[in-house]
Design a protein around this nucleic acid. Structure first.
Lengths: 182, 182
DNA sequence: CGACGCCTTGATAAATGTCAAACGTCGTGG
DNA sequence: CCACGACGTTTGACATTTATCAAGGCGTCG
């Protein structure tokens, strides 16, 4: 675990290997996963002084760490850097907005949207190796693990994907998936 | 209507009176309302060059307009301004993250969360005057208008709120509402 | 007064969640 | 090397939640 909700944001992180999830846990134990960060992604950058989410590794991740204060000092001297930071937060904002868009859709659309998002972020031919569990996917999409599993099975029976193994998914028909995505 | 999705972000806006909604419309006609902006709120500020949402007035709104290029020019000269803009985008990010948190909850929790959010943003004693329709609320919460209406009726029968009129809601028991909020 | 828009209410259907059991896979220890 | 156990996943039966479709009510404004 890298940091917890409401802790001071002293560092900024970059994923080198494996993956990281950021999340919140509600009072009754439900967990909402806000984002998955894959190799190359930056996380933990806050415009304000505290983290709004907890972050932890999925598997044994390799991470680069930068002191936030160093970045801030640089930003107050070089406005180029300040604008860059602003732009990164803007990108994060877009990601979250896209995530919201997913959450108002049906279970099938959510799962399809998730697959397409992952496929786009990890371009490795036409298959995806998921680093996260079904429970993680469910908490990300606002669905139960069971619904995720059933929906994947359903997509497989529609010949759009193949579940080579639980964590490896082959995308056969992106056109069909795109149409299912609403 | 102030601007549409994917249009160039040439201006930044501030609500003076009434309210504004930003939204996206999906291919099949479903509408997702991303935010309501109330008097005092700023909207339309983008870190990048295009808007990601459409924006339109609810009722006849009064709005202040600022050229974005002027802001950007200021930001490249005064890093204080750049940091301020970054911070505003950060606040926006938090708002959207809170919105996500609402969307994974049950209908009752969503509506309660919405009421508490509105009550916090428009502090006017213990009642709220909603500028938006039930349909708007539904599109904001990812529910149908009917479910919103039913849930409000349900809350009223639980004596937590009173529907003085369709658009005026009196909050009787914020403690109970807070508990319902999860 | 009447028409129109918005809101509420009801009956029913569809989607998703819950609980429980079976299945697979992988790593460990005999 | 095989058996076992732990854990993640899948599948099934059923309950619950929410959407859909349709009708009726209420308030406002011409």
């Amino acid at each position: 675990m890298f940091f917890g909700e409401n802790e001071p944001a002293d560092y900024v992180y970059k994923v080198v290997a494996s993956a990281v999830r950021t999340y919140k846990v509600l009072a009754d134990g439900r967990r909402q996963i806000r984002a998955f960060y894959l190799p190359g992604d930056v996380f933990g950058l806050e415009a304000n002084d505290t983290h709004t989410f907890s972050a932890e590794a999925i598997g044994d991740a390799k991470i680069l760490v930068v002191k936030r204060s160093a970045l801030m000092a640089l930003a107050t001297r070089e406005n180029q850097v300040a604008c860059e930071l602003w732009s990164m937060t803007g990108q994060e904002l877009r990601r979250v907005q896209d995530h919201i868009l997913v959450l108002i859709k049906s279970a099938k659309e959510r799962v399809v949207g998730f697959l397409l998002e992952m496929a786009e972020r990890v371009p490795s031919g036409n298959h995806i190796d998921l680093p996260m569990s079904r429970q993680d996917i469910g908490d990300y999409l606002g669905l139960t693990m069971e619904t995720v599993s059933r929906t994947l099975a359903d997509l497989e029976s529609g010949a759009s994907i193949e579940l080579a193994s639980a964590r490896r998914i082959v995308l056969y028909d992106r056109g069909a998936l795109g149409r299912l995505n609403g």
